Computed example of a mutant assay.
Amino acid sequence: MQPILPLTFILLLAVQSPAIAAQEPGIESQDVRALKSLQLLDQRMHTTGYRLVSANSEFCTETVPHFGILLHDLQQYGDQEAARLALGFSRPIAINAVAPDSPAAIAEMAAGDGLIAIDGTAVQDVAIDAEKLADEKPEYRRIAAVKEKLIEAAADGQVTLAVYSGGANQLITLTPVKTCRSQFQIRVSAKREASADGDMVSISSALAEYVRDDEELAAIAAHELAHNLLKHRERLNAQKVNRGFFGQFGKSAKRIKAAEIEADRLSVWLMANAGYDSQAAIRFWTRYGKQHGKGIFSASTHYRWKKRVKLFEEEIAKMQQMEPVAGKYAPPSLVGGEPE
């Protein structure tokens, strides 16, 4: 009997070390299992992110068109044969996930459907601006260019996609919905961590595995999304905040902590509007805090878990005193209220 390996270890092996995988007997099946597990995490993250950005769009100053699909490219995987087998690629660029109740879901699109063309432009003919995409790894530039083309096409209000699905080519016309501007991804890592860079919310595979349910995953995603919606990276950069070792002291630490407090407060409003139980933030940080002290980050820039829980309780109490409008609570920090 083969030993059962931790999922994160298998993911790291399959995604980051294809050369090692090819040398180990029996490892190919592990690659396939790992990629399938990674796809499940991607699908959970995509569903959670879509719910958060679509439900809160009316409170966001920046919105983008969204169809509810997550694309991926065969060439972004180290072992392309394993990826083709595990993930059901029918074309080099395919759908990795479809968010429930999204335009793509209504059109009955599904993971594995191959993307052939966008408004008549074949995906292989989509221009790749090497200078604009210089920060992307080479294997991710094509998918980044295709995603950008999809957003540009959506500006006209409708997009016609040529897809390969169910053994045949189809034309599907989609009307996008407006969502808050933010993307979501699972980053393969054995560390439990999460981050936001102003556009992308990243949650490590280890942390996504640690959560007990989708409600807790939403609590983490909502906190990081709050950083993006409140433009914390831009604000901290403008204040010349040091994010290195010296950022743990003085004005930099104080400003980073203030941003973390704002994100905590906003996160439970974002969760509630998306239909998630805001109490999940309390449950997650209580459990994580008891096990790991301050939480994901053990620095002076973050409150200890008991103070974080108190912040959540205060914000939930505020919501309970309000009457929702069409089932939504207007977050004070997004509609003109002063961040605390």
Rank of each mutant, 00 (worst) to 15 (best):
G244M: 04
A196L: 10
T173S: 13
Y210M: 09
C180K: 08
N273K: 01
A144V: 06
L270H: 06
E152G: 01
L270Q: 04
L266C: 11
D135T: 13
F245R: 13
M200K: 07
V163Q: 04
G166S: 03
Y140F: 13
A194V: 06
V163G: 01
K254C: 05
A263G: 11
Q185S: 13
L161G: 01
T179S: 13
A259V: 02
D156G: 09
L150R: 06
K231R: 15
R142Q: 14
R243Q: 12
F245T: 13
S204M: 11
R212F: 12
Y210D: 14
Y164W: 14
A155I: 00
V188Q: 05
V211I: 13
H227M: 04
G166R: 07
Q185W: 04
F249K: 00
E139C: 08
A194K: 03
T173W: 06
A206S: 15
L150M: 12
A272H: 06
L230N: 11
M271P: 12
G157C: 01
A221E: 10
I203L: 15
A272W: 01
H232Y: 07
A168G: 05
L171Y: 13
A154I: 00
H227R: 07
I186C: 09
L161P: 00
E224G: 08
E148L: 11
Q239Y: 09
S182T: 10
A274S: 14
D129Q: 08
H227P: 03
V241F: 05
K149G: 02
L230A: 11
A155S: 13
V201S: 04
G244T: 06
K257P: 03
L236F: 02
C180Y: 04
S189P: 12
N228W: 08
V211Y: 04
N273Y: 03
S202P: 02
V201W: 00
A162L: 10
Y140L: 14
T175N: 14
N237I: 06
A145G: 08
D213E: 13
G247V: 01
W269E: 00
D156I: 07
H227F: 07
I220L: 15
V188R: 00
T173P: 09
P138M: 03
H223Y: 12
K178P: 06
A274N: 08
V241Y: 06
R212G: 15
V268E: 00
N237Y: 12
Q158W: 05
L230V: 04
L174G: 00
V211E: 10
D214N: 15
H223A: 03
K147S: 12
A206Q: 12
K147H: 07
S205W: 03
K191W: 11
L229F: 10
R181F: 07
S205H: 05
A263T: 03
A208M: 14
A168Y: 08
P176W: 00
D264C: 08
G244L: 10
L225W: 05
E148W: 03
K257E: 08
K132R: 14
Q170A: 12
